[in-house]
Design a protein around this nucleic acid. Structure first.
Lengths: 336, 336
DNA sequence: GATATAATTGTAAGCGGTTACTATTTTATA
DNA sequence: TATAAAATAGTAACCGCTTACAATTATATC
């Protein structure tokens, strides 16, 4: 930290007290035009800029929020973060970014770090929101908004209806005449805490049941939300005895991997096997076949979460603590 | 900011002075085992955690670095940022993230904000590094590392050799027998400040010249580094009188757009027109045809930049202020 | 036991702001 | 013109920590 002019220097040069300087920079009324001018002039001359750090300490408010996500290099999260950043920018908040890789230890470590930095609040986006994490937040007493994850605890959140979304996607596949439908899902966490994949799987099962279709266990595989994982899972599905006519991947990236697996198995997509993804990343529309997918409003998940958190920090009323944003089926070329 | 125990509370409960408490938490020697224990006990009892904010003010060091990038939701940047974050995490630095959208105004605004937050240094990644921005950094006297952009000013940077990279890619196309090669580049900024696209264009031209190949102006189009832009540019190229046998897109995303344009024009990729991209984003290997591309070490650009900045902050010697990382040609299926 | 030395600990002044409270100056009102 | 009210300015305590310096205590040396 290079030294620079402080409030005393400015006060001295402008021949006023520090209080007056402070008032000028806080747009307080009750400061004469004359004083204001000379302060501004002195400040300019010295290249003075108030220290947000010192101000934060004095006011016990940092105008900073912490952001805990698994991995910013994952396009889903980078889009969410972009939404958060844009809203924060409007309200003059800054964000401290933390990549926790879904590791509970890292998450806890980051929460403590953010706390000791006095962030005004935290937006937490993780695959899991466990009792342990909940209690830590409760102990630390930091305003919290959950993004992308619902909870029964009294914590505000912004999500989509994952179950309904998967239900809709499955219904669409069924309406297209598909009967033997495979699924590539993510970690189910032993069905204990509810994670996205669990919700989505239930939605899938509901739709299948409703349509009276048989669910083949061997067509349902776990993967890791990555392209390679999707590829491997699809490959296994395709080499089984039950041949699927469609596969529902719980992420676009896994869907892309699955498409490659289909081609590598000597089949075509969508002619032989239809694929539907989840997320609607940018890449979904630039690949071939363009991906039919369930769109999540990632940017808005971030933006709404940020807006909620800032309201909570400012003690403003929030109309609804549990926000469920709309998903949307985007029909492109990977399903027929 | 919720109130919590401070150093005085702990000192009182532990029956020592605040100095001792501070010493305990800074692992100072010269504090007796007895005192250390009682401080730790008191701290635990009160749930005390030192305020990094107050510490930063007292020490004039925040252990925070500012990060200015155009757009975190762009996968290139999110990968760079991930590299930065991982290194910062190791060295106990935190990052404040700023999306400046390549807007000079936003960049300046963010620089000032970061300064008034006393960040220890800034990593700046923008398409442009102008005199104006350079001077602002110089005035503000903040340690700075440039990522992804070289400069003649005395500012450390981490880049790849864009000219050589484009040269290599072009040579590869030529070696495959291509002669009429198109280019989709980004903003050339009037060839004034050197931006990526300019360097790359020169590399392309060099290779063409060296091979004695004719460069067709109508095969060279400007675009915006987005898929749609790549699509439009390729479409224009394809409908001209000179038919290209290959197109070099200066980003993978534009390359993807171009592939779509090729198919929409009733042609095939790579059989009729080869495409080579730039970046080697994750998506490059999951699309069909898998993208032949010039790989940039995005994660490392971030990681190395962060390591350099932290060294500079700590006044350690850095062996080389101008780091040029290796690019790599990744051959997949989009070129034959 | 006296004295020198080393190990601990405490005191208090910063770091750069904000703000309650008080003091002073202006302006309005009678 | 005297006085009340409003506007403006200043003083100093405080936010929570670090650290130079001084003070105290324990240990070693003669």
């Amino acid at each position: 930290m290079v030294c620079m002019a402080n409030i005393d220097d400015v006060a001295k040069l402008a021949n006023v007290s520090t209080a007056t300087v402070s008032r000028v920079f806080n747009n307080s009324p009750y400061v004469s035009e004359k004083a204001r001018e000379s302060v501004l002039k002195a400040a300019k001359e010295l290249g003075y800029e108030p220290s947000i750090l010192a101000r934060s300490l004095a006011m016990k408010k940092t105008n900073t929020i912490g952001l805990i996500v698994p991995d910013i290099s994952n396009p889903y999260y980078s889009e969410v973060v972009r939404g958060i950043e844009d809203v924060c920018n409007i309200y003059k908040y800054n964000i401290i970014l933390c990549n926790a890789d879904n590791s509970r230890d890292k998450e806890i470590q980051y929460i403590d770090m953010l706390k000791s930095r006095w962030v005004d609040g935290i937006i937490f986006h993780s695959d899991y929101f466990s009792d342990e994490i909940y209690n830590i937040f409760k102990d630390r007493k930091i305003p919290l908004v959950l993004a992308g994850r619902a909870t029964n605890y009294d914590v505000p959140y912004v999500v989509i209806d994952n179950k309904k979304a998967a239900y809709d996607a499955t219904k669409y596949l069924i309406s297209q005449g598909h009967k033997k439908i495979g699924v590539i899902h993510g970690d189910l966490n032993g069905m204990k805490e509810t994670v996205d994949s669990v919700d989505r799987l239930y939605g899938f099962l509901d739709a299948m049941k409703e349509a009276g279709l048989k669910v083949y266990d061997e067509l349902i595989k776990e993967s890791n939300f990555k392209a390679k994982g999707g590829y491997i899972a699809a490959k296994e599905i395709l080499k089984g005895s039950v041949k699927p006519d469609a596969i529902f991947a719980f992420s676009d990236v896994m869907a892309m991997g699955a498409i490659n697996a289909i081609y590598d198995a000597g089949l075509r997509c969508p002619e032989d096997v239809s694929i539907i993804g989840f997320d609607n990343l940018d890449l979904a529309e630039v690949t071939r076949p363009a991906l039919t997918t369930v769109a999540q409003p990632m940017y808005d998940i971030g933006a709404v979460a940020a807006r909620m958190l800032i309201k909570i920090i400012d003690n403003k009323k929030i109309s609804e603590k549990r926000v469920i944003l709309k998903h949307r089926l985007i029909i492109r070329q990977s399903c027929i």
